[in-house]
C-alpha cells in the first residue's frame, strides 16, 4: 500500500513537469509547478505513515505507549507548503506583469530573451 503512495508521489512530480513542458499559458505553468510540488508532499507523508498509528500530539492525558506517525516528515511537509505558497505567489505576480508588458502569457510567444 505504501508503495502505491510513493508511486503517486513520483507520478505527480513527473506529470507536473510534463505540464510545464507542454504549457501554453503561464498560469497553467505555475499551477503545474504546484502539482509537481504536491508530489513531494505525498511522498514525504507516505515516508512517515504507519497503519493504526495516531497523530503525533502528546499531552499529559494521552497514552504515551501508542504508536504515532512520524512528526519529522510532517514538519518537512509544512515547511514545504510555506515555501510553495511564497514561490507560487511570486511567480503568479510575475505572470500578471508579463501579461501587462508582453501582452501575452503564452510561453511560445515570449521572445524577449534568447541565444
Amino acid at each position: 500500500m505504501q508503495v502505491f503512495a510513493y508511486a503517486v508521489g513520483g507520478w505527480l512530480v513527473l506529470v507536473g513537469a510534463a505540464g510545464i513542458v507542454r504549457s501554453h499559458h503561464l498560469v497553467h505553468t505555475v499551477v503545474s509547478l504546484s502539482v509537481a510540488q504536491a508530489g513531494t508532499y505525498v511522498f514525504l507523508l507516505a515516508v512517515g505513515f504507519q497503519w493504526n498509528a495516531v497523530a503525533p500530539v502528546f499531552s499529559t492525558s494521552a497514552d504515551t505507549h501508542r504508536a504515532v506517525v512520524d512528526p519529522v516528515v510532517q514538519a518537512l511537509t509544512l515547511t514545504d507548503i510555506v515555501v510553495s505558497a511564497t514561490v507560487t505567489a511570486l511567480l503568479l505576480a510575475l505572470a500578471v506583469q508579463i501579461q501587462k508588458r508582453h501582452g501575452t502569457v503564452d510561453p511560445d510567444e515570449l521572445r524577449a530573451l534568447k541565444g
Binding site: 513537469a17 503561464l26 509547478l33 511567480l91 505572470a95 508579463i98 515570449l110 530573451l113
Partner: peptide, 13 residues
Amino acid sequence: VQGGLTFGVVNSL
C-alpha cells in the same frame, strides 16, 4: 519579468 519567471520555475523544480 520573463527572466525572473523562467529562473523561478526551473530552479524550484
